[in-house]
Computed example of a mutant assay.
Amino acid sequence: MIGFIGSVFSPWYRWSGRRDPENHCCINVATYGPGSRFTMTDRGRPALRRSADTFEVGPSRMHWTGRQLVIDIDEWGAPPMVTPVRGQIILTPQAVTSAEVALTPDAAHIWRPFAPTAHISVNLTQGHVWEGHGYFDANFGSRALEDDFDFWTWGRFPMRDGALCIYDATRRDGSSLDLAVAIDAGGAVREVTAPPRTRFARSLWQVRRETRADAGVMPRQRLNMLDAPFYSRSLVETRLNGEATTGVHEALDLTRFRQPLLKPMLAVRVPRRRGWTFPD
């Protein structure tokens, strides 16, 4: 589940010239398995309302209670499964960090790992009712991702004493980002040395994938979660510094995303809704 102001993967935002991010906001929800749905409605400025502790986009909202992030979802699935997606997600961080990481030298792109270790409770209409471990992070940027990056991968892997987050990227100027951050149970953040990048099987759309792995270990997909021509999200099993772990992995091919023909395809999955009136 992702909340956007300036929906970076919205063709409508790109076609608008990216001049008004608040006029292109959304709450994106993706579920997996039987009854899976994908929602990513691009909404206009009237649908956005926010305060210090609440973020609302149309009928859905996120609210920080001081201890928990409560997410109330009231969306419609994207074609071809145009049905309601409703319910609530509650995320309870084990600790909240103060870390902030610049992904480019000029800090045009920032990553904030707010709560890499958390408990999550999910209760959605399609029968997705479960509890487990989760995470909460955020990205901020003043330029389009595809203007500064060709490719990146991200991974969050639970470890015995917390979590290990890995951010690797190839920038358009030819430089690289190679980042591994360990977060302990108390929220302390430190940069660490992780094993080298290791390629593994491409996604269904043939998106290149890589993550970190100990020498002689081949990472492998345990669950396909989301597959697009430029993007892959999956559960990936690997071994990091001697510890076996399975975490959420993302690969983003921004060279593909820059292709103009991709935007009309995305518009089918990302409908545009301009108007909205909040009830009194």
Rank of each mutant, 00 (worst) to 15 (best):
I2H: 07
S7H: 13
F9C: 06
S16T: 05
R18P: 12
R19A: 15
R19T: 15
H24I: 04
C25W: 01
I27G: 01
N28D: 13
A30W: 09
R37H: 10
F38P: 00
T39F: 03
R43T: 04
S51I: 10
D53N: 14
T54R: 15
T54P: 09
V57E: 09
S60H: 02
G66W: 12
G66M: 11
G66E: 12
R67C: 10
R67T: 14
Q68F: 07
L69H: 01
L69G: 00
L69I: 07
I71N: 01
D72S: 13
W76G: 07
G77Q: 05
P79T: 05
V82G: 06
T83E: 13
V85G: 01
V85L: 14
I89N: 01
I90L: 08
L91H: 02
A95V: 09
E100Q: 14
A102C: 15
T104H: 04
D106P: 08
H109Y: 04
F114Q: 04
A118E: 03
H128D: 00
H128Y: 00
H128F: 00
V129N: 00
V129M: 02
W130G: 04
E131D: 14
G132M: 00
H133L: 10
Y135M: 07
D137Y: 06
F140M: 13
F140G: 11
G141R: 06
L145V: 12
L145H: 09
D147T: 11
W152V: 10
G155F: 02
G155E: 01
D161H: 14
L164S: 02
D168T: 05
D173K: 05
S176A: 14
I183A: 05
D184A: 06
G187W: 02
G187P: 03
V189H: 03
R190N: 07
E191T: 15
A194R: 00
R199G: 14
R199A: 15
S203K: 00
R209Q: 15
G216C: 08
G216K: 09
G216H: 10
M218S: 12
R222Y: 05
R222Q: 13
R222T: 15
R222A: 13
L223W: 11
N224L: 09
N224H: 11
M225E: 10
M225I: 14
L226R: 07
P229V: 01
F230C: 06
R233G: 12
N241S: 13
G242R: 07
T246L: 03
G247C: 03
E250T: 08
L252T: 13
R256N: 07
L261G: 11
K263Q: 15
K263I: 09
A267T: 12
R269I: 11
R269G: 12
V270C: 02
P271W: 08
R272W: 06
